[in-house]
Design a protein around this nucleic acid. Structure first.
Lengths: 110, 110
DNA sequence: TCTTTTCATCGTAATATTACGATGAATATT
DNA sequence: AATATTCATCGTAATATTACGATGAAAAGA
């Protein structure tokens, strides 16, 4: 078993899950933080900032790119990464809708 | 290897990662949706709504509870689950801050 | 051209996750 | 008391993730 049954869920549910799963790792949360702080797009600087080997960081960046959270463009021998606004816009909408939904509930039980 | 190096990251980064990892599965996104729609807190109804076995749903609920996303209270022979507003408030703040940060960036590269 | 820098990818080991049947504990119903 | 319902947990198999060293490709600098 051990295989996520994505086919039984809606496209929306899967999209949210893919984005959040990609962000569900402290190293990747840290990467997002660094990409946000750096005015220009950071490249190998991310490796220096993290307590992880270069290969591991590269793998994390690949995951983030696959999920559509970051974009990468070649810039000479380096690669320039930046956050994809669309993803964060989507997630911001998702959570703000969710929060107002939760607040509207009649919390008679828990 | 294969062991996440949580100790090298900040408490904030780990907290965000734990919450998002818990939500990074379509079944758990679906559970959140059902708990939101149901006026009263659903219990075993979640099992009926999902294409998964009861043991699997129970495991997912456990994960959500461990991460602090849902609360559960005993109600006779059933158990009443509901969303924990604190978690969604936290995540809503996180993403809304992130989004405004992204929008303020000078996107000269990607 | 030769070397260095930068990053991706491969291979691999350790660990974690996902899913389900089976079983068990606890409350409700008869 | 006997049975049914509800849910958690155990055990287990399949799959995925995490991490890193080693290697390779591609552009920059000597």
């Amino acid at each position: 078993m051990g295989l996520t049954k994505t086919e039984h869920f809606t496209a929306e549910q899967n999209k949210v899950a893919v984005l959040l799963k990609a962000l569900g790792h402290p190293a990747r949360v840290a990467i997002i933080g660094h990409l946000l702080k750096a005015k220009s797009c950071v490249c190998g600087d991310i490796v220096v900032e993290l307590p992880l080997a270069q290969a591991t960081v590269s793998q994390h960046l690949k995951e983030l790119k696959k999920a559509g959270i970051i974009k990468g463009t070649v810039a000479g021998s380096a690669i320039c990464y930046c956050l994809d606004e669309k993803a964060f816009d989507y997630l911001n909408r998702y959570f703000s809708a969710l929060l107002s939904g939760v607040r509207e509930q009649d919390t008679t039980c828990c």
